[in-house]
């Protein structure tokens, strides 16, 4: 769907192109239009009396393509924006974090790969810890505390108070607790353990702060 590569390649030009962003945008639109036309190639267009499923998408795709061509044409005639720099770190970690959440929240299988459903107790911290590294200022300690405190909050809020059918922990976890414990009790106990761990981490690592973390602090702030 996206064509970041062309974009990056065009950024260092000097020539007839006066609005590189327009060129890249135009190419993107034309690619999109081509994709839509290809996807609807087997569908019936129908008549006005009984419009087929392909009629509107096809005309829209043509419209999108024409807009793309117009953008490219104007890019040679008028001055426009240069291409912005792409930083791939942000999108990369954000996407990986979301995917990690998606594949761990409930049992997942894709081809040969299959994962057991680990529930919010794993998916939540994963999303925060991985996602947190999207910025170069990420600090492991902060993210750890954040994930250990937000996750139990969400577990109690969604799983306990609101009773949502969102998987909270793997069934196997129940085996760790005495047989008589109900699901809710296990949920609460797990949440308390996590919250306690968050507090423990907070206090245990506080002393180390002046020596190690402060350095990161300076580079992170200004």
């Amino acid at each position: 769907m996206s064509t970041p590569r062309e974009g990056v390649g065009l950024s260092g030009r000097r020539g007839p192109v006066r609005a590189p962003q327009g060129i890249a945008g135009g190419i993107l639109l034309i690619a999109l239009a081509a994709l839509a036309l290809w996807l609807t190639r087997d569908l019936d267009q129908g008549t006005l009396n009984a419009m087929g499923p392909a009629m509107l998408p096809r005309w829209l795709a043509i419209g999108v393509g024409l807009s793309g061509l117009a953008l490219i044409a104007f890019a040679f005639i008028r001055d426009g924006e240069p291409l912005e720099r792409w930083s791939l770190r942000g999108p990369f970690f954000v996407i990986v974090a979301i995917l990690a959440f998606a594949v761990t929240i409930r049992p997942f299988s894709f081809g040969a790969l299959s994962l057991p459903g680990l529930g919010l107790v794993v998916a939540g911290p994963l999303a925060i810890l991985i996602g947190g590294y999207a910025t170069p200022e990420a600090r492991f300690r902060e993210l750890l505390i954040l994930s250990l405190s937000l996750t139990p909050f969400c577990m109690v809020l969604f799983g306990d108070l609101l009773n949502l059918p969102i998987p909270v922990f793997p069934q196997e976890l129940a085996g760790l607790f005495p047989a008589g414990w109900s699901q809710k009790a296990i949920l609460r106990a797990t949440a308390i353990v996590m919250a306690a761990a968050a507090i423990a981490v907070f206090f245990a690592t506080r002393k180390a702060r002046p020596t190690t973390i402060d350095v990161a602090d300076h580079s992170g702030r200004i």
């Binding site: 959440f101 925060i128 910025t135 600090r139 954040l146 969400c154 969102i166 992170g220």
Partner: peptide
């Protein structure tokens, strides 16, 4: 700080959409 705000937003988005 944004470096802590956005991971939290990210997780809430995931939970919200899943629900």
């Amino acid at each position: 700080p944004y470096r802590m705000l956005f991971p939290a937003i990210l997780m809430f988005c995931c939970i919200g959409i899943y629900s």
